[in-house]
Write a protein that binds this DNA or RNA. Structure first.
Lengths: 158, 158
DNA sequence: TCTGAAAGCAGAGACGT
DNA sequence: ACGTCTCTGCTTTCAGA
């Protein structure tokens, strides 16, 4: 049985190893990455370039401590609606709220689930108030985060 | 009234601008960042170094498409328990499951909320089965993601 | 597809303002 | 705290296996 490939393209063990290493520290040099996977720097450079090109690597970014930028409070909000909310207008309305970090259309009693980050409980309340102003929203259920155990990159299998 | 600073240290407007720019693209050179905020490359280099030192920037990483590494299915699982689950043993048990991308202790009916990524509904089911084997777990409520509108970095206010 | 080398540039830090 | 300068090292490309 062949290695299960994705729709996007060929992904061998080395590529997944590189993704894991880059997720841990994207400031590493290609030579250092090459030593870790047993390849030359030039080859690693080419592989990473292709991973970016294919969209497997979406972007290189920095992980910022939310508390340091005044977003110490996190919450998940289940949004109920009386109409279909899985369309672009809903996505846009949610994207306009900078406190909304993630938004997903979900199966179940709720229509949409959003992850919210605010500076205080009062600010969280203000965000909830604004969520109610979005077309179709009939109710919310808020789950406040008391402590975050961990938030980590997607597992690549390597 | 002075600018509200965080516990971690002084964070002025320029620092928040730099964080936003780095979240968008951490491969930019310090000179390019300097042009964007009106500073020299050397000064930006020093500011970013301090942001890393203080832990405001936790790490530089790459954003990987989950579907490309065989994790096309996402779900949020609310875990109910008959004992306090906010302790390190629970965190460790959850961290051992590579499908668990995030884990939070939450307020409300559930004790813990986890974000899970799997390759298929069957694999998701297998993960749920393993969650039940963690000490104290008495039930779960699973919210399957049908479509992700967006997942983006924390808003810095700039 | 990989290696190794050559050329251009960015990163890291010392120093002066 | 910011800018300039320098040196070191990495990135990027390409010829060749």
């Amino acid at each position: 049985m062949a290695e299960p490939d994705t729709v996007i393209g060929v992904m061998d063990r080395t590529d997944r190893q590189l993704l894991t290493l880059l997720q841990q520290d994207a400031t590493q040099s290609y030579v250092a990455l090459g030593q870790a996977v047993g390849l030359s720097g030039g080859t690693v450079h080419e592989r990473v370039r292709k991973l970016r090109e294919r969209g497997v690597i979406r972007r290189t970014t920095v992980d910022v401590d939310p508390a340091a930028v005044g977003k110490a409070v996190a919450a998940f909000v289940l949004i109920e609606a009386n109409a279909w909310m899985g369309d672009p207008p809903t996505a846009r309305a949610l994207a306009e709220l900078p406190w909304v970090q993630e938004a997903h259309v979900v199966a179940g009693a709720a229509s949409v689930l959003v992850k919210v980050r605010a500076g205080s409980p009062e600010e969280l309340q203000a965000v909830l108030k604004r969520l109610y102003r979005i077309a179709g929203v009939t109710g919310t259920q808020t789950i406040v985060v008391l402590e975050t155990f961990f938030e980590r990159p997607v597992d690549t299998g390597e």
